[in-house]
């Protein structure tokens, strides 16, 4: 079991850290994930993909912890307040001419995306899971995975290329105010 699980731990840590951006909290999440994987080792599908199974446990735990910490509604989507807060928090963000925000740090820009887009970008683009595995893991149809990828990457590009993000228009539905 150890020999099968161990090779995936660096990637699990990377995914958790990219989601949480806090080393200790991320490792707590990975530890929780591994404990459950060990306890439920006999429950996995033998023909299934172990990597996808581990990532599914981690992602599920991430979602329930986030719900638990009662921050469920706080998708860090980039509305006006969000942009300002991010800029305060991120010293690499600079205010270019014409008041456009430019992020030099791809990672910080990633944080400005809605969580579902961020997860898909990480699972596909960084962790190399297939579109099918990502769809199964996040519980959405494959078409939704593709559209989250597409929208997420487009927003990321705008942030990093310093284009004006029309946050209000795109995110009006997301805000609960």
């Amino acid at each position: 079991m150890a020999a099968l699980i161990e090779p995936h731990i660096p990637a699990l840590r990377r995914f958790a850290w990219a989601l949480l951006r806090d080393g200790t909290v991320a490792d707590d999440l990975v530890q929780d994930c591994l404990e459950r994987a060990i306890a439920g080792w006999h429950l996995r599908h033998h023909d299934g993909n172990l990597k996808a199974w581990l990532f599914a446990i981690l992602h599920n735990l991430f979602l329930s912890n986030r719900r638990r910490s009662a921050r469920g509604g706080m998708d860090r989507s980039l509305d006006d307040d969000g942009a300002a807060a991010l800029m305060r928090a991120d010293p690499t963000a600079t205010l270019a001419a014409e008041g456009r925000l430019v992020w030099q740090d791809a990672l910080t820009a990633l944080e400005a995306l809605p969580e579902d887009q961020r997860a898909v970008i990480l699972l596909v683009g960084i962790e190399d899971l297939s579109y099918e595995e990502t769809a199964r893991l996040t519980g959405v149809p494959i078409g939704t995975v593709m559209s989250r990828l597409s929208r997420g990457r487009e927003r990321l590009r705008r942030l990093l290329d310093g284009e004006v993000v029309k946050a209000g228009a795109q995110q009006a539905l997301r805000r609960v105010k």
Binding site: E6, V30, I126, R157
Partner: peptide, 28 residues
């Protein structure tokens, strides 16, 4: 542009991936 950003993101996150795994996360 998106493809090159993805490469940058991979490069940054690879640093995290290559860190030694803390003892508390060892399966044993």
């Amino acid at each position: 542009s998106m493809a090159s950003q993805q490469e940058k993101l991979r490069a940054v996150l690879q640093l995290k991936h290559d860190e030694p795994v803390p003892a508390r996360l060892r399966v044993a």
